[in-house]
Design a protein around this nucleic acid. Structure first.
Lengths: 140, 140
DNA sequence: TACATACCTTTAGTCACTAGAGGAATGTCG
DNA sequence: CGACATTCCTCTAGTGACTAAAGGTATGTA
């Protein structure tokens, strides 16, 4: 359990330069180094990095993650902060899912029409342009 | 129908600087200008920009959109290019939906546990760290 | 001990915007 | 007609979250 950065990368699915980047912006602590100045990591870093990766996949941004990580170091102190971060993301995720599902339907219909359509006059552009009004309000 | 850029922005939900940016990278054509050098747009630009915005929301990148826009100018020539672009995105969208749905479940469970949990020992961090292994393979 | 491989730092590039400075045009009200 | 708020103009630089490349050093195996 004295992993070089490449091993940490392999075990977490996070690329080597990204790990160094995370250290640079303070998401990962500076690990101990070998004589020759190479980083060595332990089990804690594997967990922490897995947490970071998964959070990024969930759509949390770096500041959110920083917050969550801080909280985890003060176990029960500020649970409802974590809750509110998660809650916000839940709403956002619901919005994204709804949007993607609607658009998936559109897209698959377009593909259908396009492949089996006569004269290949698929309306992909028109469809995308038409349906765009009905969501004009929610920026993101 | 001789809209200044702000009106175009209002009608499409795309911000003014973003419109200028789209012109700069060639997604929007250079519109005619007034005596005093201000851009004036017509109905065609409203459509085109709506199409662009909606495509971006779908997750198409600028190159894809450029491709789609080119195709739309040569009506039936290369429909199966549009088809393949759309098809690729269909797969990607399915992946994203699946991922979001899984994570939504996790997140909402966490929120539940956290709000109603005793002693407020919510496991948000642990949950995020634990579940991260089972998706280590699919990057992005 | 030679050598491939993995590591190091630093700088610059990517994508799709977004913000700000400093100034000119437009349109409305008196 | 003139003052004035608002919108517009260009240009440069900054953002977030990486990713790539250059040029050089450690590590570990044959």
């Amino acid at each position: 359990m004295n992993l070089p950065i490449g091993e940490l990368a392999r075990r977490t699915g996070v690329k080597v330069p990204t790990i160094r980047f995370y250290e640079q912006i303070g998401l990962l602590p500076q690990p101990p180094r070998t004589e020759g100045n190479q980083r060595r990591y332990g089990k804690a870093e594997v967990n922490r990095l897995n947490f970071i990766r998964h959070s990024r996949e969930l759509g949390f941004d770096v500041d959110d993650i920083r917050g969550l990580l801080e909280m985890s170091s003060q176990p029960q102190a500020s649970c409802h902060q974590a809750d509110s971060i998660a809650r916000n993301h839940l709403a956002e995720i619901d919005r994204r899912i709804a949007s993607l599902r609607a658009l998936r339907g559109e897209l698959s219909r377009m593909v259908e029409e396009c492949t089996h359509g006569r004269i290949c006059d698929c309306r992909i552009i028109e469809v995308l342009a038409d349906h765009s009004q009905c969501k004009a309000e929610h920026a993101h």
